[in-house]
Simulated scan of single mutants.
Amino acid sequence: MSELTFVDVCSGAGGLALGLERAGFEPRLLLDEDGDACSTLRANRPQWNVLQTDLLDFDPSEHPESYDVDLLSAGLPRVKSSATVGRTDSRVEERLLEATVYLVHAIRPRAVLIENVPGLAQADEYQPFRDLAHAELTHLGYEFSWFVVNAVDFDVPQNRKQGVLVAVERHSPQVFRPPVPTVCEPRTVGEVLGASMASRGWSDASRWAAQADQPAPTLVGGSRNRGGADLGPTGAKRKWATMGVDAHTVGDEVPGPDFAWDPELGRRGMVKITIEQAALLQSFPTSWEITGRKTARYRQVGHATPPPVGEALGRAVAEALEGARAVPAAG
């Protein structure tokens, strides 16, 4: 089959790009405004062409490698929850959605993939964006799919719903079909993190893992303008507490042999999830290095598209673009 190529914007820690790589796509250009995220990408894939710039300032005419690609992908910052409506950073993030659509005019990829909050695909508050995307991309000759995927259906131990737009050129070999789940039974937090919790000799690790018998709630990276690292909003924190995890902060290391785990004591009796463990809950490989200081590292992890979701979406796009010649599924 011919090589499939892509440009990835707002690349972050590289979860979507890594998934697309596994699906048979080769990146021509990845861009992100955050220096730590760009360092992460370069540390893990020195051969990737990484550009540090704001998408709103990006001029593709200065980067000819961004033209004539099969896919424009964007795992954009999650926007416009009820807690963020009206904030300045929420409006900036909405502008990134619009800028991605306008970028299609310039580089004319064969397909477009945008991932964001689940409301992107169905909520009334996103109707203006869906109208914009429909008007601009229909004019350019693309067919649309709006849908929601849950990472837990793709072997990620986390309930993480994502709204997805895929637009494919009308003359593609096949109609695009959203990916179907790859697993029947979700993996649990205890199953995935049990070994790491025991790695410093904590004797209660297996007992903790037995209680952490469900997938994680959605990890949230948070805004660069507010606060430090924690595992999510109030509802998520309550869910973590049922698993004996203090979600108000992120740990520096896993428990040692003397740690007394007793959730009835409140936060001081609970374990903390480390950044490396959060990356496992996002299904990054253990070899994937996240660079920067603690809060910046966690933010990259929390905002990422889980690589297995990126791979599933990439294979579905590849099938539409290449027909029967789409890359085979990984064994």
Rank of each mutant, 00 (worst) to 15 (best):
P255D: 07
G201V: 05
P257A: 08
E33C: 14
A316W: 07
R293L: 12
E125S: 15
G251C: 03
G222D: 01
A316M: 08
P328K: 11
V168K: 00
E98A: 14
E115Q: 14
G292I: 06
G201L: 03
E33V: 15
A216S: 12
C184W: 08
G269A: 07
G232N: 07
T5A: 11
G194A: 11
L313H: 03
D36M: 09
A326Q: 00
G12H: 02
T88H: 11
R177W: 00
A99L: 06
P118G: 05
K272R: 15
D246C: 07
F259R: 09
G24L: 13
E319Y: 08
N49R: 15
E169K: 15
R42D: 03
T291G: 01
L120Y: 04
F6M: 13
P77Y: 02
A312Q: 03
Q214M: 11
M197T: 07
V271D: 02
P263H: 01
Q52A: 07
S73Y: 00
G19E: 02
P178L: 05
M1Y: 13
N225P: 01
A99W: 03
M270V: 03
F154R: 00
V101Y: 00
E115S: 12
S206W: 10
R160W: 01
T84F: 08
G331K: 06
V309Y: 01
K80N: 13
L219C: 03
T84S: 14
A135F: 05
R299I: 07
S82Q: 14
E94R: 14
D252V: 02
L51I: 14
A13E: 04
Y67R: 12
T53W: 06
P186Q: 06
R297N: 02
N159F: 05
H303N: 15
G228Y: 12
K239S: 09
R187V: 08
V301Y: 00
G244Y: 02
A17I: 08
T53I: 13
S223R: 10
G244H: 04
P308I: 14
R78N: 11
A260M: 13
D68R: 14
G19L: 04
K294P: 04
E3M: 15
A320Q: 04
R325D: 11
T291E: 12
G256K: 11
Y298G: 04
A229R: 10
E26V: 15
W48N: 11
F176M: 09
T305N: 04
F129P: 05
V166A: 08
A247C: 07
E62W: 08
D32P: 10
V166E: 01
S223G: 10
S61L: 15
I273R: 00
W261E: 08
